[in-house]
Design a protein around this nucleic acid. Structure first.
Lengths: 246, 246
DNA sequence: TGCCGACCATGAGGATCTTGATGGCGATGC
DNA sequence: GCATCGCCATCAAGATCCTCATGGTCGGCA
């Protein structure tokens, strides 16, 4: 089932109408705080834990619909935590967090069961999108919530990463795709550059703030080229996307 | 829920009809005074605190629906205050105050949870508008309170920053937009140049008083051009906006 | 008629946005 | 390994837009 949240965004709900529950496990407080904040904003109910022991306990009590699990925990090996989580929650999808360098090979195979992973440092849009995908596919949320965003004659498929305008397929790079997804999930609303930076770029991004402007210009080139523009600048405020018609 | 106050303005209320509660945290007394006055005028209930410790305590007792938080406090780091606030009030939106130069980089992640920020020196209209947005989106106030102001055939959308008269879209600059918003939030009421200056321009504005006249003339050119005028001068008193019909 | 307040034209200066050019980095294929 | 390619971020220049001060004109009112 989908509904419209106070934020005016489409959110996932369980079949019985109650909010989706997500357990976040990481030993860095700043990470759990950041994720909790962002995921709560999606309308989900969040519980967090700082180590493996806490995670198992929280899983037992909280019965989450999905788990975000850092593979590097102080007290237990990530795989051990996973095993015991699985005993508690056999069918719950897990989104793994791993350090970029700390190898992807140990993850290999883990995602076979329909799980997924992202590497640190991640962007919030990425984590949210993957979690939505996991929850949708796990059946914890109603299937009718589909993965296609539509604004005017512009469509974006979060599953296949396909974008098209007026039927014409458009190829986007990864960053362009995430930026467009964020815009399209907040149509007709002005988004400040700070907001965009916080959601689309990874949390440790230290670069120039004008990357946002740059990628907006890339998007315009691909999406608005020679057409009625859909991406608009609000000087001193931010950017927004809306159907070309109005 | 929205209702109309004795002043003839539309104000936010909680679902149970009681006034919205806002906690203001800043160590400069002049700022908390200024904000408290302006926010009380919105019909909100205000509590203020001068440091982090006081903020936490006030949060516990006062249970606000939103918090205005200066990032520079004498006793605690802004982020530390934020963390402890979140523990007390997990879902309450926060509006951060930051120094203009004190960088946008420490803002990283702060707007991720649907929070927002303004830089000092701010204008009261801006703070009020952002707070209204935060409260509306957080769901603390009734859903029906939407973001569109209407006076006669003139409409202004606070989310998309769109303005139109008689269906025709009008492009305004940031300052023009804030001025019109202030006028439209006080229809049929004479607003003195001093009031307008205090509200729409930032509190440390030192320029000539005739900026107000100037921007009124800009607005007239865009809004009243070739139409029945909606913006009227009351000589020696100020300006007011009202539907063209009456 | 003279005064004062309101309105408007102009332009300087600054802030913001856009775009092209450039180089690093990782992924891919040989 | 090595070369190549695409993606991403930085830099810098240019264009545009916004803000505000100056000074002039207009109109109402005593």
């Amino acid at each position: 089932m989908t509904t419209t949240s106070p934020q005016g965004r489409t959110e996932l709900l369980r079949p019985d109408g109650s909010p989706v529950r997500v357990l976040v496990v990481d030993d860095e407080l700043s990470i759990t705080e950041l994720l909790s904040m962002a995921l709560r904003y999606e309308g989900w109910q969040i519980r967090s834990a700082g180590d493996g022991t806490g995670a198992i306990q929280a899983a037992r009590e909280f019965r989450p619909d999905a788990v975000v699990l850092d593979m590097m925990l102080p007290d237990m090996d990530g795989l051990a935590v996973l095993g015991r989580l699985r005993r508690e929650l056999p069918d719950v999808p897990v989104l793994f967090l791993t350090a970029k360098d700390a190898v992807e090979d140990r993850i290999a195979g883990l995602t076979a069961g329909g799980d997924d992973y992202v590497t640190k440092p991640f962007s919030l849009e990425e984590v949210v999108a993957r979690l939505r995908g996991l929850i949708r596919r796990s059946g914890a949320a109603d299937r009718r919530s589909d993965s296609v965003l539509v604004v005017g004659d512009l469509t974006l498929d979060e599953d296949s990463h396909e974008v098209s305008r007026a039927g014409e397929s458009i190829h986007l790079t990864a960053t362009e795709f995430e930026l467009l997804r964020f815009l399209m999930r907040n149509p007709r609303r002005v988004l400040s550059k700070a907001q965009i930076l916080d959601r689309v770029w990874s949390y440790d991004f230290g670069g120039q703030a004008n990357v946002v402007e740059l990628y907006i210009s890339y998007l315009r080139r691909k999406i608005d080229a020679g057409r009625e523009p859909m991406i608009h600048t609000r000087r001193g405020a931010g950017y927004l996307i809306k159907p070309a018609a109005s």
